[in-house]
Design a protein around this nucleic acid. Structure first.
Length: 135
RNA sequence: AGAGUCGUCCAAACGAUCGCUGGAUCAAUUCAUGAUCCGGAGGAAAGUCCGAACACCGCAGGGCAGGGUGCUCCAUAACGUGGAGUCACGGCGACGUGAAGGAAAGUGCAACAGAAAGUAUACCGCCUUGGAGUGUCUUCCCUGAAAAGGGGAGAUAUCUUCAGGGUAAGGGUGAAACGGUGCGGUAAGAGCGCACCAGUUCUUCGGGUGACCGGAGAAGCUAUGUAAACCCCACCCGGUGCAAGACCGAAUAGAGGAGCGUUUGAGGGCGGCCCGUUCGAGCUCCAGGGUAGGUCGCAAGAGGUGCCGGGCAACCGGCAUCCACAGAUGAAUGAUCGUUACCCGGUUCGGGGUAACUCGACCCGGGGACAGAAUUCGGCUUAUGGACGGCUCUGACC
RNA sequence: CGGGGCGUAGCGCAGUCUGGAAGCGCACUUGAAUGGGGUUCAAGGGGUCGGAGGUUCAAAUCCUCUCGCCCCGA
């Protein structure tokens, strides 16, 4: 009994901590994975854009927001495209809890997005996400 | 010190926080989820230019067509790759480059210029024979006092022209002109002959596994270039590619079979059941093909390091040792902060120097290339930041 | 993973197979014609043939490598 107590306490602590920190996780449930979902978004979703990104979104059928990233070959080589996708995912991971609702969001990078760094990316994406909530 | 050339190595490191992803173990446990531990991009992962492994399809054997390769020997699972050499070319040199078989099997092409572009011949030219013309000379005849004129014959020519023959020495060209120079020779010339030089073919000797190299002799043999033009010769190649291929397999629709039904009403609606009412021709089951989707293929050897032996080397053999070494699939391998190291620029300080400048320290600011596995290996090619070493040439000093 | 096409003057194209002086149309400049403009006529300028290397006497054309753009199949 005495020996078990701290262990259980520790376990609960870890679980609670993880519950708190899970708001920053980014698993497969948080992503759009199927081509049909992307096609549905481009067909029926609304779209907004600025000079670096375009976002098409519509209400999803899950209980949380989901993200898909589209960076075409036109934007740059594989290294550039991977970097943009990482920036976009990182921004979504750190800010998705501030976004109300259960949207399916597809972020499409435009050609100028190859030239900006992570801080600029965060700035312009934040701008766009705010316009989702208040159309 | 400068310029160059060849080769080897590295691809910033560490910590904290938050994430992503594969495997193993545990949580009653297959999935899902969570915890712990271990692992998570490159020298080119790139281009996809070659070669193989692997999978399926085809296939008795041989040939044609088509494609590829092309100095020699060796290495290799294989290669268009590599190593060692040969030859040619470039470079003062270190060294580099080379699709480097055959033009004497045949066909095609060689613009412009030029006489002519591959058969050796036509043109100009040179020489020669003959004819005609013209000029000159000699001689004869006629006219005339003479000068001179006319006509005939013969000879001759640094002349003109026509016809025949010889010749390939010479020919503003051209990328390239059928060996070069000299002497002889000739009517003029010509490898026509001779000497030397260059090449080709053949014979032979020596070295080398061989490509080839060196020497001797013979034949006047002199034959253009182009095969990354067709082609010939030798050798190699069955096709398609992990979206290969194997397995599981929903909903809907259609096809097949069986059963029950079509005023003797299957089945459905009117909250559950019966009655009732209403709609009115299909409904239920079976097995199979097959789509979306999913699982496997899919991550441990043509492996690295060291020593020994063979080989000039590429490489091969043996022993020891190290790892078990990324496996995603809208596609992971990251983000933020801090510290240190490196490079660049600047301020200040100190040392050296007349100065230009150089060396060291602190601080501030900035920078870090090319580039992302997609079935797996061996190469090639291309892109790109730096460090170190060998060698060559030039200059200065000792 | 595999296959195909294109790159020539500011623009659109021919020439590439079969190597031999870089062309056509529009556009541009100048001149004529008109009172002026348009139309028309005449003359003219403008091209490292995407880049590098090679074969050849000679390359837009042949060969190799490379850059960019576009398309197709599974």
């Amino acid at each position: 009994m005495i020996r078990e107590k701290p262990k259980r306490f520790f376990k609960q602590l870890v679980a609670g901590k993880n519950y708190l920190l899970r708001r920053f996780s980014f698993t497969k449930a948080d992503r759009i994975l199927k081509r049909s979902d992307f096609l549905r978004l481009s067909k029926t979703g609304k779209s907004i854009h600025n000079r670096y990104f375009m976002i098409s979104y519509c209400p999803g059928c899950y209980d949380s927001n989901r993200l898909g990233v589209t960076v075409s070959k036109r934007v740059g080589n594989a290294v550039t495209r991977n970097r943009i996708k990482r920036y976009v995912r990182e921004h979504f991971r750190l800010n998705k809890h501030d976004l109300a609702g259960n949207w399916d969001i597809n972020v499409i990078a435009r050609r100028d997005a190859a030239d900006i760094d992570s801080k600029e990316t965060n700035k312009w994406l934040h701008n766009l996400y705010r316009r989702i909530e208040t159309p």
